[in-house]
Structure formats: structure tokens, C-alpha cells
Amino acid sequence: MAAPNVVSISPLLVTSGQPSPQALAGLAKDGFHAVIYLAPSTVPNAVKDEPELLAKQGIEFIHIPVPFGSPDESHFLAVSAALTRLQSKKVLVHCEVNMRASSMVFLHRVLHGNEDPAVAYEAVAKVWSPGGVWRRLLLALLSSHKVSFEPY
């Protein structure tokens, strides 16, 4: 798939930055059933016709715009609810460069999938080291679920 920072989490879950229009047009042949897009549609590299490209292939499109400078628990809850509903389907979670996506998927895997945070965090570390509001969000949600883990 042509996109920045593609990270395959499992056979049914992939995170990435913004796929090219051509990559989006080929997702059905790669077995994808749904796409969760986490960047606002106003970001410069957004593919304006992404919903239409996916609909033509019968792929469900879910848009949860997460402001990069102010992510919060409501964004995580929306992402996690979508991932839970789609857990038996092949899903791509993407944003601009896979910072939002990798972080939200990490939280879902740990808090609702009961995965080892050190193992789940490897997918985040391939892309970035969250700081600022993102680090605070990760720490707050992990703490509220009594998960002891220090993101690096």
C-alpha cells in the first residue's frame, strides 16, 4: 500500500499515514472492509474524494476528526467503539503520518484488547515518540485503567 509509515498490527489491522488516491482505490483487492480516518478533512494532504473511492469498493468509511493539538478521551472512545464493532473485519486506521492512528490503536489494543503495553507500543515507536498533549493523553488513559506503562 502506498502510504507513509504503514504498520501492520495483525492480519486484520493496519495503521498508516495518508494513502495515495491510487492506494485507496486498491484497498478492496487487499481485503480491507473498513477505513477509519482520524485527521480533519481540512488537512493539506487529505484525499477529498476518499469516501467516494472507498464506497465504490464497498468499504465502510468512518471519519473521526482528531485535532492534532487537542486529542481527548472522546476521540479515543469513538475510535475504540469503531474498532470493537469491526473486530472481525480487515481495517485500515490512518491519519496524515500515522501519529494519531498509531496512538489511538495502541490505546485500544491495551485498554480494550488487554494486550501487553510494551508489545503494543512497538507499533507506535516505529512511527514516533508521542510528546506534549499526546503523551499526556496516553498516560492519563493508561492510568485511569490502572495500566502501568511509560511511553518512550
Rank of each mutant, 00 (worst) to 15 (best):
D49W: 00
L107W: 01
S16N: 01
G31S: 11
W128T: 08
S148Y: 07
P44R: 02
F149T: 14
P44Y: 00
A101C: 03
H145L: 08
S8M: 15
H75F: 06
S10R: 03
T84F: 08
L137F: 02
Q87F: 04
F68S: 14
P21N: 05
L137G: 04
V110Y: 05
P11W: 10
A23K: 07
V43A: 04
G17W: 04
L111I: 12
T15P: 07
K126C: 12
M104Q: 06
G58W: 12
P40K: 04
H94N: 15
L77Y: 01
L27A: 00
H33L: 13
G26H: 03
Q22Y: 10
K29E: 10
M99E: 14
H145C: 06
V119K: 15
F68E: 10
D30G: 15
N45M: 11
G17A: 09
V105F: 04
G113D: 08
L92G: 07
H112E: 01
P130W: 00
V97L: 13
A25E: 08
I62G: 04
Y37K: 01
L38G: 03
C95A: 08
L38K: 05
E73L: 04
L111N: 08
S70R: 09
L77I: 07
N45K: 14
P130Q: 01
P65I: 04
F32P: 05
Q57H: 07
P21A: 12
V66Q: 02
L77D: 09
L77A: 07
G131R: 11
D116W: 02
L111K: 06
K29Y: 00
L139F: 13
E96Y: 02
G31R: 01
L38C: 10
V133K: 13
A123C: 14
L54S: 12
L24I: 06
F106Q: 10
F149E: 10
V79N: 03
S20Q: 03
A39L: 13
L86I: 05
L53S: 07
T15A: 10
L38Y: 02
P11N: 14
G17I: 06
D49T: 12
A78T: 03
K146V: 11
S70Y: 07
V124S: 04
V124F: 02
R100G: 08
P11V: 13
A25Q: 03
S88M: 13
P67M: 02
S74N: 09
T15M: 06
Q18S: 08
R135G: 11
K29H: 06
A25D: 12
L53H: 00
G26I: 04
I64F: 02
E150Y: 10
Y37H: 13
P21Q: 06
D30W: 12
